[in-house]
C-alpha cells in the first residue's frame, strides 16, 4: 500500500518534471528541426521532427553566406569577453573592499549597490545614449562594452562570497607580508573561483543574448552582435526564409549551451555559495 503510494507519487513527480522539460525544450527542438528542412516542408501541415528531404547543408550554407554570421559571432565574443574582463577588474577590488575593509561610508556604498541591482538596464538607456553620443563613441565596440563595465550584480555576488572567507585568513596574509592587492590576488581569488565562474556565466549569457542595447547603439552591420545579426538576416530575407534563419539561430545559441554544459558543476557550486568553512 505504502510502497505503491510512493511509487505513484514518484511517477506523478516525474510526469510533471517531464512535461516541464518538454515545454522548455520544444521550441529548441523545433528550431533545430526547422533548420534541417526545405521551405515546403516547414509549412506543411503534417507534424514531423525529421525532414523527409534533408536540407541542412543548404540552410546552414545560406546562413553563413547571406549574412556575415562568423563576424557576428566574433563580435559577440569580443563584446562579452570585453564586458566580463572589465567587470572583473572593477567588481573584484570593490567587492573585497566592501567585504573585508573597514572604512566610512561602506554601508551606504553597499546600499547603493543594492539599489543599482534593482534598476533595469532600460532605465538609464537614454542618458547613456546621449553621453556616448556626446563623446562620439556611438556605433563602436566601446559603446557596446562601456555601459556594462560596472556590474552591481558582480559586486554583490563577489562581496557575498568574500564575506564567507574568515577574517583570520586575511589577517594571516597581512602578517605574512601581503598588501591588499596580493591578498586579493593570492588568497581571495583562488578561493572565490566557483563564484567567479557563476558570475561569468550569468554575465556572458546576459550580454551574448542582449538585443536591446546593441539595437540602440549599433547602426552598421559590421558591429552587430549575434541577436542583432538575426534581425539583419530577417530584414534581408523579407522574413520568409525560415530554414536559414533557424540555422542561424542554432549557430548563435550553440556557444552558450556548450559553455553551460562545460561549466555546469562549477556553476551550481557558485550559485549555492556554500562558501568556506573554517
Amino acid at each position: 500500500m505504502n510502497r505503491q503510494q510512493s511509487l505513484t507519487v514518484a511517477l506523478l513527480r516525474h510526469a510533471v518534471l517531464l512535461a516541464g522539460a518538454v515545454i522548455m525544450l520544444a521550441p529548441f527542438v523545433w528550431m533545430i528541426s526547422t533548420s534541417l528542412k526545405p521551405p515546403n516542408e516547414i509549412f506543411s501541415t503534417d507534424l514531423s521532427l525529421l525532414p523527409r528531404k534533408w536540407f541542412a547543408l543548404e540552410n546552414y550554407g545560406k546562413a553563413f553566406t547571406k549574412v556575415p554570421l562568423l563576424r557576428y559571432l566574433l563580435n559577440g565574443v569580443i563584446v562579452t569577453a570585453g564586458i566580463f574582463a572589465a567587470q572583473l577588474l572593477v567588481s573584484l577590488p570593490c567587492a573585497y573592499a566592501m567585504a573585508k575593509l573597514r572604512f566610512r561610508g561602506r554601508e551606504v556604498m553597499f546600499t547603493l549597490v543594492l539599489v543599482g541591482l534593482m534598476i533595469p538596464a532600460q532605465v538609464p538607456a537614454i542618458p547613456r545614449y546621449v553621453m556616448l553620443y556626446q563623446v562620439g563613441l556611438l556605433d563602436s565596440y566601446a559603446a557596446l562594452i562601456l555601459p556594462f563595465v560596472v556590474s552591481a550584480f558582480g559586486i554583490f555576488l563577489m562581496r557575498q562570497f568574500f564575506r564567507t572567507v574568515p577574517d583570520d585568513l586575511v589577517h594571516a596574509a597581512r602578517l605574512d607580508g601581503c598588501g591588499e592587492f596580493e591578498i586579493l590576488w593570492r588568497i581571495m581569488l583562488p578561493l572565490a573561483f566557483p563564484a567567479m565562474v557563476a558570475f561569468a556565466i550569468i554575465s556572458v549569457v546576459a550580454h551574448w543574448n542582449d538585443f536591446f542595447w546593441p539595437l540602440v547603439v549599433v547602426q552598421t552591420g559590421d558591429l552587430a552582435t549575434p541577436p542583432l545579426g538575426t534581425l539583419f538576416f530577417r530584414n534581408e530575407e523579407a522574413g520568409s526564409d525560415f530554414g536559414p534563419l533557424m540555422a542561424g539561430t542554432v549557430v548563435i545559441t550553440a556557444p552558450l549551451v556548450l559553455l553551460f554544459l562545460g561549466a555546469q558543476r562549477r556553476f551550481i557550486e557558485g550559485m549555492t555559495l556554500t562558501g568556506m568553512k573554517g
Binding site: 583570520d168 585568513l169 589577517h171 594571516a172 596574509a173 597581512r174 602578517l175 607580508g177
Partner: peptide, 18 residues
C-alpha cells in the same frame, strides 16, 4: 602589520586552503 616582524598563530590556524 607586515613591517612589525611579529608572527601570529591563530586559533583557527588560518592556513590558506588552496
Amino acid at each position: 602589520a607586515k613591517a612589525r616582524n611579529i608572527a601570529m598563530v591563530f586559533q583557527s590556524y588560518a592556513l590558506y586552503p588552496h
